[in-house]
């Protein structure tokens, strides 16, 4: 089952802080999405609104065409695991899995056991006495074994060590291939996970900055390097994200399609065009100081 998510002019405020600001984005569903944004950019608020953990001040969220807020038929299709894991402190992993089994219609207990073992999560210890990594792993286990048609992991695996994270990437892909569904993953570890994402959504200060196929977005950024005057002439009128100068050489990061035409122009201007890593593109697109 692949449920689409349609966010229409969503605004969420906390007191006088606007966490999500008139944001619209449409996710067709059935894909793995990366949600990228700096701390405080509104990622968690956006995911929480989709999961109906909070109410919109303006605009609305539709999941499979319906509003999830106070709509159990929709919310039981949505699983959001926040970075804390949303686990009660006195719970053991056993108790947390039992509860998930009760509330999650597609719960796969066998898969959950496999993940607990894979991530080496202690089953009897209370959540409060677990390490950060163990709590993260438990959260990821609940998120994946729920097999919810809309699964959102909000930096859930952030506390896991590298071997556990790579095990998570493998098991995520394997399970997604077997059980395609809409998966949204927010993360800071961009380089590590970029290739898992079919599409990427970048938000900043509660607003949408970019939404595209991962590879297409990556190819929209370019570093232009060459003699100062040539680079300036070539990039005239382009969206410049960053500039650096060393003696007579200048390097400019631009945002915009770099097709065959621009490549031909580059050789005409005698400047070098190089792709930019998504991480760098992300840094440039979101570096404006907060309002």
């Amino acid at each position: 089952m692949t449920l689409g998510i349609d966010v229409q002019g969503l605004t969420v405020r906390f007191g006088d802080v606007t966490a999500v600001d008139d944001l619209s984005v449409r996710l067709a569903g059935g894909k793995i999405y990366g949600l990228l944004g700096r701390n405080g950019s509104g990622k968690t608020t956006l995911m929480s609104a989709i999961a109906a953990f909070l109410q919109a001040d303006r605009g609305r969220v539709l999941v499979d065409g319906e509003q999830p807020y106070e709509n159990p038929a929709v919310t039981e299709q949505i699983c959001l695991v926040r970075d804390s894991g949303d686990l009660a402190d006195q719970d053991s992993a056993r108790a947390a899995l039992k509860r998930a089994a009760k509330f999650r219609p597609n719960w796969d207990a066998e898969f959950a056991e496999r993940l607990i073992e894979l991530f080496r999560v202690p089953t009897r210890r209370g959540v409060a006495r677990m390490s950060r990594g163990q709590r993260s792993a438990l959260g990821v286990t609940v998120g994946l074994a729920s097999r919810a048609p809309v699964t959102m992991l909000d930096e859930s695996y952030f506390g896991m060590d590298a071997p556990s994270r790579y095990a998570f990437y493998d098991v995520l892909l394997e399970d997604y291939i077997e059980h395609p569904r809409t998966i949204v993953i927010s993360t800071h570890l961009i380089e590590e996970v970029t290739r898992l994402f079919e599409e990427v959504v970048i938000i900043d200060q509660g607003r949408l900055v970019a939404h595209d196929e991962t590879e297409a977005l990556r190819m929209r950024g370019a570093a232009v390097t060459g003699a100062v005057s040539a680079v300036e002439a070539f990039t005239d009128g382009m969206t410049v994200l960053a500039e650096r100068r060393l003696g007579g050489t200048k390097s400019v990061t631009v945002f915009g399609a770099m097709g065959a035409e621009q490549r031909a122009r580059a050789s005409e201007f005698d400047v070098e065009l190089e792709p930019v890593a998504l991480q760098d593109l992300f840094v440039h697109l979101t570096k404006e100081a907060p309002r």
Binding site: L173, I177, R195, E198, E215
Partner: peptide
């Protein structure tokens, strides 16, 4: 799918 899983790449890619 084998390729995607082996190289940790999105299957659509």
């Amino acid at each position: 799918n084998q390729y995607a899983a082996h190289f940790r790449i999105n299957p659509a890619t």
